[in-house]
Design a protein around this nucleic acid. Sequence first.
DNA 1: CACCAGGCAAGTA
DNA 2: TACTTGCATGGT
Length: 218
Amino acid sequence: MTDTHRTVMHRVFDRLFQAFGPQYWWPADTPFEVIVGAILTQNAAWRNVRKCIENLKAAELLDLKAMCAASAEDLAALIRPSVYYNRKALKLKTFCEHVRTRWEGDLDRFLTQKMEDLRPELLGISGIGPETADSIILYAAFQPSFVVDAYTRRILSRHGWAVEDSDYDELRDYFMNSLEPEAPFYQEFHALLDRTGHLFCKSKPLCDSCPLNGWRET
DNA sequence: CACCAGGCAAGTA
DNA sequence: TACTTGCATGGT
């Protein structure tokens, strides 16, 4: 990717960082908690996911072995607020079962394999698509895989990037070919884009106070 | 009450 | 390959 792409991406990052400051993502105590949150937040509001995490924590099920031992029905009852709870209970079970059987339950060894191996393995687990896989790689494994969510796509499109027809991997490549692969930087960038989306990119197009307005001129 | 949040997998042609 | 549908809660 050209030097101008890199410069443009950094300019966008700087604007958002100056507007909002550090975001302190992901809000979780352990890598396992990050993974559970990544699955539960699919098509769900984070405030509801937080309740689910607290329910699981209170039931002492926020642990890979404990979750393997729990029934899908019991998990479903605890994660009701996350939407699609029956489906997500199965997704959690499927993930835990995968790590238990393929990695003898060693989550740390699973997450510390190199990204080129980890990403396809995650994508091969039913219930984990590209956005969830990249969230896990970036925030649970601390490896630089850029997360592209619906807000990222909308923000880019509304501020003049021609990204309407790009698929997930094309957009991810767009970021990763422009930026140096540093996990803390990717973490902050995605968190800032998410915050921008929440504040300015919902129903109203191009809100007047969005910090990205006029980004080309400076 | 209607509608939105907004990822993934399976099904259709 | 491209498009559609099921999932199914809680907040506005």
